[in-house]
Design a protein around this nucleic acid. Structure first.
Lengths: 253, 253
DNA sequence: AAGAACCGTATTGTATGCGATTATTGAAGA
DNA sequence: TCTTCAATAATCGCATACAATACGGTTCTT
């Protein structure tokens, strides 16, 4: 793509594209990070896709410096793969990594459930129930909204523990699950059963930590079996051809 | 302190310090990151300490760019605090954050124990026992060695699960615990009781997941009560002087 | 014509420079 | 002497510049 190689010009007098006055710690770097993160989670950037520094920077109106910084962070979180001298790609987890992520997520959310059992304030319980009603309403519709709401339910729970680290880990695991489902998931099985969310709230309310943990565990387990299937898309020609080769008695290197 | 501001000259012709062929993904950036990480964990850089970009870059022989990149990652991991326009500091977790970290760590390591119960190979069990013997030997000696070994035991366990994400989280939580103990911990209570490690190995070997999880939970719980105490060091001059001021009837702003 | 070596181009890795923001110190006023 | 304010110095935020590496295509060799 021999773009005229326009070197500069992405400059902006833009002293403040809304500025982060509200609470902007590291204004633009953070913004780039967030933009890429959302783009990946919402699958605007598809798993495995190449991420060239300058075209992205150009698109976002920043220099490569900030894009690189964002890549670094996203790599720590497992959303981006950073290869030595060959740039960045949207992560493309293997099935094995996918299993790892789900296992850890189950463990983390079990922790959330245990922490929350019996400590839910009335306001919090109400908030969760309102959320579930939203999920119910969106249930029939097609994907995006329904999926987003399902995810947010779990994030809300993690927030309510008041444990910032736990929240971060749940968010991270959750993001990676989005990626994973984009690769290996069925077209659109609404991933979370609303009824399971309801039961969970009930157990939390009742203060039954053991039951809450078991419900959460089972819930996430069933997400896996319900939505996760065999590999759907293939990342590389070799993966596509390997079975054919084998059936013909050829030996892929 | 006003170093002559030697600007450049830290450059290295180093075209190939053996090249990263082995496994060096992003040679120098990674190196900076690791160096800082170790320095923080080993408390060469003390909690709360200021981290000016250029003096650190100068010290490490790299430019501010790489140092910044490292800061970003360390911030994600909670070892560094990044304040808007005021640079970076070694993180100084509050007591509340400390509790969060320990809680999450307990949850994660419980997961480790459950995963490992009954799946330990003979070789792995032997490795763990060898490690415990090392701990025992180092028990009498003063701090650093003993502490490092205690930590490594837990890391080894996490490695053995084969779950990369779980390993990363345990490592991260573990690093942060080092920071926390540096601030709030007793001088040098050897943090892990060797006997507890022994019992744990036994339970894992026996395949008793419940008992293993309980032992791990209890073990980490007792680390907290054994080593964690009231605030010891103060981060800021103000905190140090406040009591004196009060006792003299002065009023700190 | 198949293969290998070579060269140009597209990107990545790292350093440096410029403007902006914040801390610090010194001076003037009360 | 204590406060308030301003000018200076130090740092950070970000863009750009330069060097190194990898990829693709072409040409030369056999």
């Amino acid at each position: 793509m021999p773009r005229p190689t326009r070197p500069s010009r992405a400059n902006k007098p833009m002293t403040n594209g809304k500025e982060t006055g509200t609470r902007g710690p590291v204004p633009r770097a953070q913004a780039v990070y967030k933009a890429l993160r959302r783009a990946i989670i919402e699958q605007a950037l598809k798993p495995g896709m190449k991420l060239p520094e300058d075209s992205i920077g150009e698109q976002l109106g920043v220099s490569r410096t900030l894009v690189r910084e964002a890549f670094g962070r996203l790599a720590v979180e497992g959303l981006v793969e950073l290869k030595p001298n060959r740039g960045a790609n949207v992560a493309y987890p293997t099935l094995e990594e996918a299993r790892d992520v789900f296992d850890v997520r189950r463990g983390l959310e079990r922790l959330v459930a245990e922490n929350l059992a019996g400590r839910l304030t009335a306001a919090q319980a109400a908030e969760l129930e309102a959320h579930v009603r939203l999920e119910e309403k969106a249930h029939g519709q097609d994907g995006p909204e329904s999926i987003r709401l399902s995810g947010e339910f779990h994030i809300k729970l993690a927030e309510m523990t008041g444990n910032a680290l736990l929240l971060r880990y749940v968010q991270e695991a959750s993001s990676r699950c989005s990626l994973i489902l984009a690769i290996y998931g069925r077209p659109h099985s609404s991933e979370c059963a609303v009824s399971e969310h309801r039961q969970l709230i009930e157990a939390l309310r009742a203060g039954d930590a053991v039951r809450a943990a078991a419900l959460m565990d089972h819930h996430l387990q069933s997400v896996v079996t319900r939505a996760l299937l065999a590999p759907r898309a293939e990342r590389d020609i070799r993966d596509v051809l390997a079975p054919y080769a084998l059936s013909e008695g050829l030996t892929p290197s």
